[in-house]
């Protein structure tokens, strides 16, 4: 009977509270230890596939990749010269007619930045890449590049990468994460539209009539 002398058993509800608190603390500690684990090299993940840090300094980095059965010249010619593509684009900037070094951001990109963005080509390497960056006083600073890589018999791998840094975080963006997700999805859609146009001559639609929504 020694074990029962002078003690009041702890109520079950308290056990549950302490148990839950201990579990949460252990889980939080585990996550912290895992994320600070020195063995994890966040730069080792290929391309944009790092598990935790898809950023470069203050910039959030996002992008998309497709393979197109065409040469880099053909792909670039379609991107820069096929006006049928431009109204369909959500995020991928397209060339401004009169000034060869200027790109126009599509409407989605303009909406996200709230003010018009000028985007200027800053580097070009034939058959390899086109890089651009935004100018002016929009709410975001954006850098992007379109890169072409030979993908053997499958065609040319086309990768677009965009790095975005909001100037005034709270005023312009819904949240950075939501923006990055929308941007990534939109860029993938844009590259797929580009592929459709190059490979098939048209952009797939299930509409039953030209005037249908």
């Amino acid at each position: 009977m020694l074990y029962n002398q002078g003690h009041t058993p702890m109520p079950i509800a308290n056990w549950a509270r302490y148990g839950l608190a201990a579990t949460l603390a252990t889980a939080a500690g585990g996550v912290l230890i895992y994320r600070r684990k020195p063995g994890i090299n966040h730069d080792a993940a290929p391309a944009r596939s790092a598990r935790h840090r898809r950023r470069f300094g203050d910039y959030r980095v996002t992008g998309a990749t497709v393979t197109i059965r065409a040469t880099p010249e053909q792909i670039r010619a379609c991107w820069q010269g096929n006006a049928q593509l431009w109204p369909e684009l959500e995020y991928l900037p397209f060339p401004e007619g009169n000034q060869p070094d200027l790109l126009l951001p599509p409407s989605e990109l303009r909406d996200m930045a709230s003010r018009p963005l000028l985007t200027r080509i800053v580097a070009e390497r034939e058959d390899e890449l086109v890089a651009w960056r935004s100018e002016g006083d929009g709410h975001a600073d954006m850098h992007g590049r379109l890169r072409f890589r030979d993908n053997g018999a499958k065609g040319t791998a086309v990768e677009v990468i965009m790095a975005v840094r909001p100037h005034h975080f709270a005023s312009a963006w819904k949240t950075e994460a939501m923006m990055a997700e929308a941007l990534e999805l939109g860029l993938l859609r844009d590259l797929r539209r580009l592929r459709m146009l190059i490979e098939t001559g048209e952009i797939a639609t299930a509409r039953m009539r030209p005037d249908a929504a």
Partner: peptide, 25 residues
């Protein structure tokens, strides 16, 4: 579509281009 990588290998039901992008996700 008849032109994409999969169609070129006669895997027509794997075509990359025939589904509108809005319905691919």
């Amino acid at each position: 579509c008849g032109q994409c990588f999969h169609c070129s290998e006669q895997r027509y039901s794997n075509c990359d281009n025939s589904c509108p992008v809005e319905d691919q996700e």
